[in-house]
Nucleic acid binder design. Sequence first.
DNA 1: CGACGTTCCTACAACGTTGCACACTAGCTG
DNA 2: CAGCTAGTGTGCAACGTTGTAGGAACGTCG
Lengths: 370, 370
Amino acid sequence: MAVTMHDVAQRAGVSIKTVSNVVNGYPYIRAETKQRVETAIDDLGYRVNMSARNLRTRRTGLITLAVPELSLPYFAELADAVISAADAAGWTVLIEQTSASRERETEVLSGRRRHLTDGLIFSPLALGPDDLDLFTVDFPLVLLGERVFGAPADHVTMNNVAAARAATLHLASLGRRRIALIGAHEGERVGSAALRTAGYREGLEAAGLPFAPELVGEAGLWHRSTGAEAMSRMLDDGVEIDAVFALNDALALGALHALHAHRIDVPGDVALIGFDDVDDAKFSVPALSSVDPGRDQIAHTAVELLLERIGATGQGGANGAGDPAPFRKVVPDSRIVGRESTGDVGAGEPCRLVSTQAGGTEVVPVRAAV
Amino acid sequence: MAVTMHDVAQRAGVSIKTVSNVVNGYPYIRAETKQRVETAIDDLGYRVNMSARNLRTRRTGLITLAVPELSLPYFAELADAVISAADAAGWTVLIEQTSASRERETEVLSGRRRHLTDGLIFSPLALGPDDLDLFTVDFPLVLLGERVFGAPADHVTMNNVAAARAATLHLASLGRRRIALIGAHEGERVGSAALRTAGYREGLEAAGLPFAPELVGEAGLWHRSTGAEAMSRMLDDGVEIDAVFALNDALALGALHALHAHRIDVPGDVALIGFDDVDDAKFSVPALSSVDPGRDQIAHTAVELLLERIGATGQGGANGAGDPAPFRKVVPDSRIVGRESTGDVGAGEPCRLVSTQAGGTEVVPVRAAV
DNA sequence: CGACGTTCCTACAACGTTGCACACTAGCTG
DNA sequence: CAGCTAGTGTGCAACGTTGTAGGAACGTCG
């Protein structure tokens, strides 16, 4: 049925291995021979059988990207960027949706599909620092996000505290004094919520503003609906505010909805800023100011680190110990994108970049394998 | 290095084939033997090597979903639904982004990655009816969308004309008389734009309204930005309108932005309805009315048809001709979701389903193989 | 002139799994 | 008792590719 190297070899009058050599770009082949093989390949419509090649080479050419849900725009845009970056390097991406459930996130690290790909870029949302041992795995792994630090893996994250601090300060610099926060996770010590909330408090302090508990709105899941609910609760409770820092853009857009429903003008009465700078932010009414955490750079760096790790893996061999590269932590630059919702620009004007946070790379020594 | 069936067999004191039988759920195995094998598997942490299995079975357990871009919410949500549906059936999805370019769409049908998966769910945007021969392929294929009809493949599409007609009629039923259209593709005879525009004209006619060229706004790409531009152009030109039918939600949200920038009240001055019913629609300000084309059903049906086709493929054998099932065209039910932007409901109220279009399945005889 | 290097090509043996054929035991049927 | 069928397990030969080792032809150099 399917055309194999054998068929090509026969037609071209060479050995099967020569066909393999041609396909793989082995240099020592006479031009004429190469030509003959290539003609035979075209004539027969031959394609290499990936399964066979994968079996033989112990590589699949696939990497996994595990994210909570594609229908969340942040992760859809991240997936887009990761796929593009991998594609440019000749790799293919397989996406796993975890729904942010512990069970599925655990399965990503050890489950059925683990052996389908050569490496994993993982943005956990349910697993946390208590699950650190789960992250001690024997395959290339790059972590994203803020749930787990200190795992034996490369890590691409963002400058949450500094960026949140800058966002808060930005609102303060506009003369706002009652700055609410939407999306807090009470009691949590890790994760984006905790870090960004810490940045918010730092920002208040730096601006000489008091911290007021009633200004903090809880929202477990960071969806538009929960943002709208949290904002509504706060407004219904009669809390006085003149600015809102939402911990992501979905929350911010939900909050915007609630503000509008309460006939509150943005940015006239209340200035609003989000986090993530998803595509939607540009097109809400009014256009949403946000923090760009450097998504493209995150995706690009994650793919780069993972492929490096995959490449290095091959060297182990009889050497046993080898000398694995130390784990790196990379923090891309983030910046604040001022749009209408903070009154930084009028409708129609291009957005203004208000402030810049420098990131960087930190090298962490490899911990002894367990 | 890696644990193989051989190791498991040795430890359990059975043949390698028995391990294989246990792993694959072969029924005729003594409970005690099965237990012993399973214990050995757990002890050694054995996982089947997918590459080897794939080579042997000529199956990969993967299907491809090819869409233009994940950062377009409609496709992100579609991908989410397809992945979930495939997952439920034990299959894994590989996503290809085509950027709606001819080159990449052609590659999806014949390129490097073609042999990586067992089947393809393809939503073309660049290829059209002139490329019908490209779609005559020798692997399971399910088409989505409205670009290509009559290809030798199963097809899941939507009731574009009827749904657009209903949306237009709905605006008319609210007393609107100057109903603009945003997103037209002048001169095109195929694709969503042409079909939905046809439905719009049918709707106008059914409502006894005249068709007016100045009410039709072009927008090549259906992004928020192009929607905003098209809307702005029309308003700047002084065209009088009291309703807008945007051919998808991204355009509608962009148009909403432009309407707001022109200080036009929605739905007071202008009623607005989109198409696709993406998640965002619920949370815009005001909440956007839209046409739900039955996205979940589309994803579900597409996966179902593809897996059926993949299953049937195996039977070919020496039989030669076989008797392939005829190609099916499935049209899920679509419905209009009325929200604030058409004044169907006030802020906070749940949305109202205004009208329902019945879809169905049509069976097309298989064309002779080429 | 023999040793050695380049260039070009090939044979063989895996990679880890599953399909197929078959062996053997028990119980049952005609 | 021969001949089934159901139940339980094994051995062999692929699936299509690539790594390793090496052979043959042709210089080139000391």
